[in-house]
Design a protein around this nucleic acid. Structure first.
Length: 208
DNA sequence: TGCCAGGCCGGGT
DNA sequence: ACCCGGCATGGC
């Protein structure tokens, strides 16, 4: 069993996942921050609130007082800290790129990654999700499901760190954004269905 | 009905 | 370089 073969196995089992569930690169970035340790259903509610309030653009969101922003994203949980995190990203975007995502993404992925990792509230997974799903860069996203599933299947230790896990995937796959996109989405799909922290359905796991 | 979900930060060792 | 408590809603 290899990393690459596992991808094909998941794809034939579940089919294309059509990620990221968002229409614009900005919506994807907002979703990436809001989904931190949070069920996507709650994030979808928060994003629906932002759309209904017609503030889902960088300029409009940044012009919103943090208290109003927090109220709109309340369903996503951790709403006070996430409101600050959205604002810290927006501050970076306006201070460095005049609020233009196009400008922000018009630079080398490695440099941009280091840069946004310095934004308070953007960690490795959020940064990589932004680069891959909003920027289209071939960067592999590692999340809790990735670690749990692949350590259980003995690809690496359960104590392996983010970058160690990421390297294993990137070293064993063609460097292709489309592939990385689909693979991560399939891993999340597998995780939700079969590899929850409690009640894992390891007996009928498609990878077994 | 407690426990968890597509993490991250700040403070401590 | 890790480890831990805190952050919070909605679903099962």
């Amino acid at each position: 069993m290899t990393i690459e073969f596992t991808y094909h196995k998941l794809y034939s089992r579940f089919g294309p996942q059509h990620w990221w569930p968002g229409d614009t690169s900005f919506e994807i970035i907002v979703g990436a921050i809001l989904t931190q340790n949070t069920n996507w259903g709650n994030v979808a509610r928060a994003i629906a609130n932002l759309k209904q309030a017609k503030v889902l653009t960088p300029k409009k969101l940044y012009s919103l007082p943090v208290s109003k922003l927090a109220a709109l994203i309340r369903p996503s949980g951790y709403y006070n800290i996430k409101a600050k995190r959205l604002r810290s990203f927006l501050g970076h975007l306006f201070n460095n790129y005049n609020g233009s995502l196009k400008k922000m993404f018009n630079r080398p992925a490695a440099e941009l990654r280091e840069e946004i990792l310095n934004v308070k509230g953007i960690g490795p997974e959020t940064a990589d999700s932004i680069l891959l799903y909003a920027g289209g860069f071939p960067v592999f996203v590692v999340d809790a499901y990735t670690k749990r599933i692949f350590s259980r299947h003995k690809f690496f230790s359960e104590k392996a760190g983010y970058h160690e896990v990421q390297k294993i995937f990137t070293d064993n796959l063609k460097k292709d954004a489309r592939l990385f996109n689909e693979y991560h989405a399939l891993i999340v799909r597998l995780g939700k269905d079969f590899c929850k922290k409690t009640n894992p359905r390891c007996d009928i796991c498609p990878l077994k």
